[in-house]
C-alpha cells in the first residue's frame, strides 16, 4: 500500500495539506480537524515538522473495542461505529500522529487517501509504498 511520506526540508508551511485533509474527511476547512499537521520548528524559524501516521499498527492492540484495525488496503483505520473515543490510541501512538477535536467523537487519523499530497506545492509530502 501507499502511504504519505514526507520531506520536511521542502515544506514551506503553507498548510494546504491540512485544509485539504479536513475538507476531505470532515467537509470543513479547519487545520484543527486535519490528520496531518505541519508545525513550525520553534528553534529554527522557517523550517517545519510534518506529523502524519505511518500506519505502523502499534495502536491496533491497545484498542479494546477493535475499532482500530488494519483495513483491507493495508491502512490502519478507525471504525467509527465501534470507537468509543477513549483516546488510548492517541496516547499510545509512538509518533503522536493521532489527533483529537472536541466536536468529533473519534480521534482524527490518516486513512492514506492521498488528498493532501495532491495539493502540496513543493513535493514535501507524497505517496509511496510503505
Amino acid at each position: 500500500m501507499k502511504i504519505v511520506k514526507t520531506k520536511p526540508e521542502l515544506c514551506n508551511g503553507c498548510g494546504a495539506c491540512m485544509t485539504a485533509c479536513s475538507k476531505t474527511r470532515y467537509k470543513v476547512e479547519d487545520p484543527q480537524k486535519s490528520a496531518i499537521r505541519v508545525k513550525e520548528n520553534s528553534e529554527k524559524p522557517g523550517s517545519y515538522e510534518i506529523i502524519v501516521c505511518n500506519h505502523c499498527g502499534e495502536c491496533i492492540p491497545v484498542c479494546n473495542t477493535e475499532a482500530m484495525h488494519r483495513a483491507r488496503n493495508g491502512a490502519v483505520r478507525i471504525d467509527d461505529v465501534k470507537c468509543v473515543g477513549c483516546c488510548i490510541c492517541v496516547g499510545f501512538c509512538p509518533n503522536n500522529a493521532i489527533f483529537t477535536h472536541p466536536e468529533i467523537n473519534e480521534p482524527i487519523k490518516c486513512i492514506a487517501c492521498g488528498a493532501c499530497t495532491r495539493v502540496c506545492p513543493t513535493g514535501a509530502i507524497y505517496m509511496e509504498e510503505k
Binding site: V84, G85, C87, V90, G91
Partner: peptide, 24 residues
Amino acid sequence: GVKGDTNGPADKQKIIDAGLRLHR
C-alpha cells in the same frame, strides 16, 4: 451507543487533555 460525549460533559476538551496526559 457509548461515545466520548455520552456522559454529557460540560467541557469535553478538559477531559480529553487530562486523559491524554495520563495515557501518555
